[in-house]
Design a protein around this nucleic acid. Sequence first.
DNA 1: TTAATTGCAAATGGTTTGCTTTTGC
DNA 2: GCAAAAGCAAACCATTTGCAATTAA
Lengths: 148, 148
Amino acid sequence: MADTSESAQGDRVRQLEADARRSGMRITPHTTTIIQILDESTDHPTAEDIFERARERDPSISSASVYRILNKLEESDLVRRQRLDSDRFRYEIADECRHHLVDLDTGQVVGITDPEIDELKDKIAKRHGYEIVDFRLELFGRKTGGGS
Amino acid sequence: MADTSESAQGDRVRQLEADARRSGMRITPHTTTIIQILDESTDHPTAEDIFERARERDPSISSASVYRILNKLEESDLVRRQRLDSDRFRYEIADECRHHLVDLDTGQVVGITDPEIDELKDKIAKRHGYEIVDFRLELFGRKTGGGS
DNA sequence: TTAATTGCAAATGGTTTGCTTTTGC
DNA sequence: GCAAAAGCAAACCATTTGCAATTAA
């Protein structure tokens, strides 16, 4: 979650619901559940992860609904999906950072926000004569020093 | 191809065959065909692309063989595969650059080799306390100026 | 010789879709 | 009321795999 205070969490959920409604989605209980799970998750979950977490709160939800809701949220640019190391898509709220460091020992995915990344992007865009619409940096590695 | 002279091309094919043989592969006519196609391709082809190009030279080849040969070459670290924009893997010889700029209008994939990318990687690795084993930068954009 | 490779067809597995019923607004 | 969303099961489709026949070394 972007903010640790409870009200800010609720705010983000409410904001996302409002944005989703504005882009034509109906806010069903399932929709709210999925948005809440995304809001609470910091581990870049797969659709299956999200499905399992959603079932704990609402056992009637189907995986087809999870996929459909996630796709709608992505089409509305509220959620971003991308493949990291695995064959499955991982999902995260679109305002979160889009660059990742994957720990090869633990599978943990860490968001990267270093400002030099954008500077590099601008430099490359200029050099190659492109307007960059989207981009991502993916790193795979292991902890040094105290790490395993 | 990394070099434009014909002898250098043949050299790279021969080198890859030798490396493949050293890592336990048998060099069949299909293997040579796949390696030649990879050596000649600058467009980061998918397995299906490679299959089509291979069939023009040897109509008896099956897609299963293409996949198996590509997987063997990847296990030997002679070929790298990654997903860019599409659902399919794209393949390229491992000594080629691993960063890409995808033209959203044409689908063309351009290799990026700017040295600042490695500098940024080193900076981030140090900052986060990781040893980076692999990494990639993927950019999606459109040509500016004369572009559509 | 003999273990690796091949083609074919079937299996996999994450994601999507068709259909009918239910529901948000 | 009606278009959107739901569950279920079937369809998709890129990639993998089992098997029997072939082949590189």
